[in-house]
Design a protein around this nucleic acid. Structure first.
Length: 136
DNA sequence: GCCAACGTTGGC
DNA sequence: GCCAACGTTGGC
């Protein structure tokens, strides 16, 4: 199974909102690289939910419940979206600072390409960060 | 609020 | 098809 990290500004769409909604369609992704990542998502893939700008931390885990389809909010009809559902909040939020402080996460997409809103997470990274999200 | 990094656009 | 100018994102 693949893993991902999806970013959102809490002022635009927060983790709390996803919990309230149970699931949402992840629209508004325009960056071609991020779109390619969306298309690569499979049903049941898990995603870290990251708050950018405010908080700058991983706050929860979401699951892909519908694979890529055309984004209805994109007039050009080029963008795609997926549906994600809230799985659970993390016990311990993982801040960007903590990720940067971990040398083994040097190559993590979130650090390497901070502007990409949908970032692939490899198994090693997923395991490492999962460990960091469990309370000490 | 500023600025660096990166994407996109448009003139040639 | 190149590249300068401009816009946007996101960390600080």
């Amino acid at each position: 199974m693949a893993h991902w990290l999806i970013k959102s500004e809490p002022s635009a769409y927060s983790w709390d909102q996803l919990v309230k909604d149970k699931r949402t369609s992840w629209t508004g992704v325009r960056n071609p690289q991020a779109s390619a990542n969306l298309k690569a998502m499979k049903l049941g893939d898990l995603c870290f939910f990251y708050h950018s700008n405010e908080g700058k931390e991983i706050v929860g885990i979401a699951r892909v419940v519908k694979t890529a389809y055309p984004d209805p909010t994109d007039k050009a009809g080029k963008a795609v979206t997926v549906d994600v559902a809230a799985v659970e909040p993390v016990e311990q939020s993982v801040t960007l600072a903590a990720i940067k402080a971990e040398p083994r996460l040097k190559d993590f997409g979130l650090v390497r390409q901070s502007r990409l809103s949908v970032v692939p997470v490899n198994d090693e990274q997923w395991k490492l960060i999962s460990k960091m999200t469990t309370a000490k």
